[in-house]
């Protein structure tokens, strides 16, 4: 199954339960704030040295993000950016990227 169908199912679920913006959409929106540097849906453009995030294990991304937050992971800029997101938001982002196909499939 693709993450897309999962998201669609989750959106349906949210609509059925009368929730506001569903967590799948919140995750999508939050992850899109990373795309300027890390590529649409976490697949950076060829020839750039940015970390690909699409298809990474959720725990890999969370470890990295938490490392930026507590200073154990070296960074030029990520240690500043990551502090703008709550732990819950980082979890949603890591989950979203785990569901993407590396290489930028639509």
């Amino acid at each position: 199954m693709t993450y897309r169908t999962a998201l669609a199912a989750l959106a349906l679920l949210a609509a059925a339960t009368g929730a506001g913006a569903s967590d799948s959409e919140r995750a999508r929106n939050l992850a899109a704030t990373c795309a300027n540097c890390h590529g649409t849906n976490g697949s950076p453009a060829a020839g750039t040295a940015m970390d690909p995030l699409a298809g990474r294990d959720r725990s890999w991304t969370l470890n990295k993000l938490n490392g930026f937050k507590d200073g154990t992971q070296q960074a030029t800029i990520m240690h500043q950016i990551v502090k703008g997101y709550s732990d819950e938001q980082l979890e949603l982002i890591a989950t979203y990227f785990a569901m993407q196909t590396a290489g930028g499939a639509r």
């Binding site: 199912a9 679920l13 339960t17 799948s24």
Partner: peptide
């Protein structure tokens, strides 16, 4: 934690993903 969040976070794992095979997709947008 709303149901949607639990399901979404679960979907990030392989087991969660298979558990979430949708019966239908789209339609609300």
């Amino acid at each position: 934690m709303p149901l949607d969040r639990r399901r979404f976070l679960l979907a990030g794992t392989a087991a969660g993903a298979t558990a979430l095979l949708p019966a239908c997709a789209g339609g609300t947008r």
